[in-house]
Design a protein around this nucleic acid. Structure first.
Lengths: 215, 215
DNA sequence: GGCGTTGTTGTGCAAGTGTATAAATAGCCC
DNA sequence: GGGCTATTTATACACTTGCACAACAACGCC
């Protein structure tokens, strides 16, 4: 008989399906690149058939767009989570922030691949460039605020330009070390990048070696 | 009549054709991404027909591989060219090196797009990851040598681990600022990134403000 | 000048692409 | 339990892709 049996399926909630499809998209892009992430590949990974995608997204372009937005959202969310620590000296919080950004899960080859793949198209898609700028500025402002606290605690009164330069530099230090950690993590011993990051950032701010402190 | 006239063509030297095809490939990748760079697009840009590519490269994969190698070659060549300055103090040479790496033509959106697009696939193609590591290490070794000279001139005797950390940090500073300059150059005033870079690098090395000097 | 070599063109093809749409069925309401 | 509806499958289609190959013509050699 071989009745042309159709595949069984379950109806999922809309939000759940969209998330699954976006996750499958990011997985596919990370694995096969932007060009290699086909609707069929994505659908397969999400456990549905390709046609379904059209039911949730007007076209492939839109799916990729939303996937990128989701990626950026998670990245900034994680980065900001590293700022949480409440009761600690500004200097300790800064060190903790740098350290968090230079260890798993932020140091992660898959996320880096995704970031590079998407940002590589920023030249052609101003949308991506703008998304980057916004994320970057958000991150930098957080850094700047933290730097202001640190310097205030040291009784120093930096002018705005100085503050801005510090934030730009610290951001660059974190970004540069992040890239190396993601691309060639095995080249560094565990914690080495974070240690270098903290030391470099403190040097940039002109903080002397940690005094036994104010406890 | 309309004789099915064939297109006129010229026979080019092998090396010339290969270079043209590689350049056309890089242009196509920069413009359309890895997936959008089709053999026909590349051939069009190179001023030949698609079939010819097969005469010079076994397959598309090989062409892309060679194009990436060419890109890396040019990047490291440019970066090292910034080290040329012969008669100058080590500290001045370091500053010149940093400055050169944070201005055109090294700060360039097209080159950045290419770099990001290719490196985004490093997770899947170990060849790319290895090429990056080699380029990175080469660059870092240059930095390390320069740092050694600078510190020697300051009569400081750093141990190897210290030297290594300085090189990693300085490399990260340059990379991080390079990315921002390429992605959002209009966010910074001309020369600002270079100025920040030099200042941050000198802080990292613990160099005091420039003394009137030894002249 | 003719001729052979081979760089170059043009066409063909199977596989895979995104999109459109019809058919089916899972799950909710009564 | 029996329909209703909208999620999901499945198929079709026009198009593009990388690659193969046969025909052609530019150029060096005699």
């Amino acid at each position: 008989m071989n009745a042309p049996s159709r595949r069984k399926f379950r109806r999922e909630g809309e939000e759940r399906r969209r998330q699954d499809l976006i996750d499958a998209t990011l997985d596919s892009v990370a694995e096969h690149g932007l060009g290699g992430a086909t609707l069929r590949t994505i659908a397969l990974r999400a456990g549905v058939t390709a046609g379904l995608i059209r039911h949730y997204f007007p076209g492939k372009e839109d799916l990729l767009q939303e996937a990128y937005a989701a990626l950026m959202g998670r990245m900034t969310e994680q980065a900001k989570a590293a700022l949480a620590m409440e009761d600690a000296s500004p200097r300790q919080r800064l060190a903790a922030f740098v350290t968090a950004n230079l260890n798993a899960p932020i140091i992660d080859q898959r996320v880096f691949s995704l970031w590079a793949t998407f940002i590589g198209r920023a030249g052609a898609y101003p949308t991506l460039a703008r998304a980057h700028s916004e994320g970057y500025l958000g991150f930098r402002n957080e850094v700047e605020a933290l730097v202001a606290e640190v310097l205030a605690a040291e009784r120093r009164k930096p002018d705005p330009a100085e503050l801005r330069h510090h934030a730009i530099a610290i951001n660059a230090i974190i970004d540069g070390l992040w890239i190396e950690g993601c691309l060639a993590g095995e080249m560094f011993s565990p914690g080495e990048l974070a240690a270098i990051g903290v030391k470099t950032v403190e040097a940039e701010l002109g903080l002397g070696p940690e005094t036994g402190g104010n406890q």
